[in-house]
Design a binder for these strands. Structure first.
Length: 543
DNA sequence: CTGGGCGAGT
DNA sequence: ACTCGCC
């Protein structure tokens, strides 16, 4: 009884969500200024090859913008200080520190690149609304989009206003603990929170109230500015005369379906109206690790071999820190072509023999075994007896699995369910959730009833509930769980379930079928970052 | 003188 | 294996 009641009442309906988008200011430049504070007052650009990928705000005042070529940036600003940003190590580490810190506020954190995160703060907001100590004055923190005046008697306004206060707290925590500034947007879905976060930059925040939604979405000059509509889709829309947001909004769906297919058509028309029902999906640890390098010319086998070995060693080092083992190896190349230089990438992949995958990453035997595989993959694409001209090499480890030593004993669900006491109090909600998803490679995946996402998130448990005499769902403990369903449950319920499984010494079956999108695709195992003991290294707490 | 990553869908 | 999306 307890469970079904909690599940039914605890899941926020899609329309009542409060979503936060946090976008770090000129992220790579900030990291470089932390590494070398003397750079703070100078115009600073971060360089990758011939491109300045970002720059600090001192440089921006002098007319420099991100993604300018180095030549152009130097022309506009001769005093510009450039640092190399081709090694992503420091950015990656800081990026995961940010995500880790955000996960202390809510386990529902989704990464978007290295410098952006979505956080579903619905439950935090509701907690504050219930807390009498936080009651009273309803003033937004930061900007309100369109200078709309909130209506204190409007519940939706109240939730978003409280959301803006949560956002301010979170930004303050990121600054005090990591020294980073960023912009936040608060709205009722991911699309709107992302769009609104950029309205005041840098180091500011904006909340969007529903009445100003159309103002925000119609302020976009072109459909390409809508996140989710990329270059290709925008071009096809343009060809249909649908370059403007308003044209896309009012286009007959049949026209869109004919050009783009039903799924994309529906999705982008929703987006054009500011509607976005996608969930904040906890990102967890990366599903692949890759290293790449681009260059003007590489045309000998020995040069290829040397470059691949360097990439491989970097990757093995990262894989070792991650604590998982890789079971697929992929090589991507780009060959020189005078025209259309940037899109002719080809790749070949192969399994990594279990013996190699599970041996210690540092050993020379592993390096040579993987180098042999890489050169075989290379020769599947390039006839080495003929002249060739490469401009890029990428090595990627994917199909990452928890390795035996690290994961199964300490981090499996069995660990949590059989231990008398947890090593940590379950306060860190994210950790209990992680331990569940960590065992997601269990092969027995029973498909569950599909349903449109967000409408009835408890359906993943439905098979375990019986009808009782009085017609109420009976309080049987679910014995199977979809990772993605579980992760979207209220944190309190997650904890309750974990604790109850533990008490009853039950090991629930894990399903990994993706809950949304009518279950047509599997996301594969979706284990969360901190579930891996060694992955925790990425989440250092600041001193 | 257009990086170096990531994930999802097909 | 490839396309498309995001930063």
């Amino acid at each position: 009884m307890r469970f079904s009641a909690s599940i039914a009442s605890g899941c926020p309906s899609l329309a009542r969500r409060v979503i936060l988008h946090l976008d770090m200011d000129c992220f790579y430049a900030q990291v470089e200024m932390i590494r070398n504070p003397e750079l703070r007052e100078k115009p600073l650009g971060v360089q990758q090859k011939t491109l300045m990928v970002t720059c600090n705000y001192v440089a921006r005042k002098l007319g420099v913008n991100k993604c300018m070529s180095i030549r152009e940036a130097r022309e506009k600003c001769p005093q510009l200080v450039l640092v190399s940003g081709e090694d992503l190590t420091h950015y990656r580490e800081m990026s995961y520190k940010v995500t880790g810190l955000l996960e202390e506020f809510s386990p529902r954190v989704e990464r978007l690149g290295f410098d952006e995160n979505f956080i579903d703060i619905t439950e935090l907001v509701e907690k504050r609304l219930r807390d009498p100590q936080c009651g009273g004055a309803m003033e937004a923190s930061g900007h309100v989009y369109n200078q709309q005046v909130p209506d204190a008697s409007d519940w939706t306004h109240q939730r978003l206003i409280v959301g803006s206060q949560v956002a301010a707290d979170i930004r303050a925590a990121v600054y005090s603990q990591l020294g980073l500034t960023g912009c936040a947007g608060v709205a009722s879905n991911k699309l709107l929170s992302k769009l609104v976060s950029g309205t005041f930059k840098p180091n500011q925040q904006t909340v969007l109230l529903p009445e100003s939604c159309s103002c925000l979405i119609n302020s976009l000059n072109h459909v390409h500015r809508i996140p989710g509509i990329g270059y290709k889709t925008a071009q096809r829309l343009e060809a249909l005369g649908l370059g403007s947001v308003s044209a896309l909004q009012s286009c007959p769906i049949t026209v869109l379906e004919k050009e783009l297919g039903a799924a994309v058509a529906h999705r982008i028309q929703m987006l054009s109206r500011g509607e976005d029902d996608s969930l904040v999906t906890p990102t967890g640890p990366p599903q692949s690790l890759s290293e790449e390098d681009s260059f003007k010319k590489c045309c000998t086998v020995s040069d290829v071999s040397a470059k691949l070995e360097e990439l491989l060693r970097l990757l093995l080092s990262r894989l070792s820190a991650d604590g998982r083992s890789a079971h697929t190896l992929r090589l991507t190349i780009r060959q020189f072509t005078p025209t259309n230089k940037y899109f002719n990438r080809e790749s070949r992949q192969c399994p990594i023999p279990v013996k190699v995958a599970q041996s210690r990453s540092g050993s020379a035997a592993v390096v040579s075994a993987l180098m042999e595989l890489l050169m075989k993959l290379f020769e599947k694409m390039i006839d080495v007896k003929m002249p060739f001209h490469l401009t890029l090499l990428n090595v990627c480890f994917s199909n990452l699995k928890a390795s035996r030593s690290s994961a199964s004993s300490r981090c499996s669900i069995g660990f949590y369910l059989t231990q008398k006491k947890l090593s940590k109090p379950l306060r860190k909600d994210s950790e209990s959730l992680r331990s569940v998803s960590d065992t997601a490679m269990a092969p027995s995946c029973t498909p569950h009833t599909a349903c449109p996402q967000g409408t009835e998130p408890n359906v993943g448990f439905a098979m375990d509930c019986k009808e009782s005499v009085d017609g109420d769902a009976v309080s049987s403990l679910p014995k199977s769980v979809d990772v993605n369903v579980f992760s979207q449950l209220p944190v309190e319920l997650q904890k309750e379930l974990m604790s109850e499984w533990k008490n009853q010494k039950i090991t629930p079956k894990i399903q990994t079928k993706k809950f949304q999108d009518k279950g047509k695709t599997s996301k594969g195992q979706r284990s969360s970052a901190a579930s891996h003991p060694n992955s925790l290294l990425k989440y250092f707490k600041p001193n």
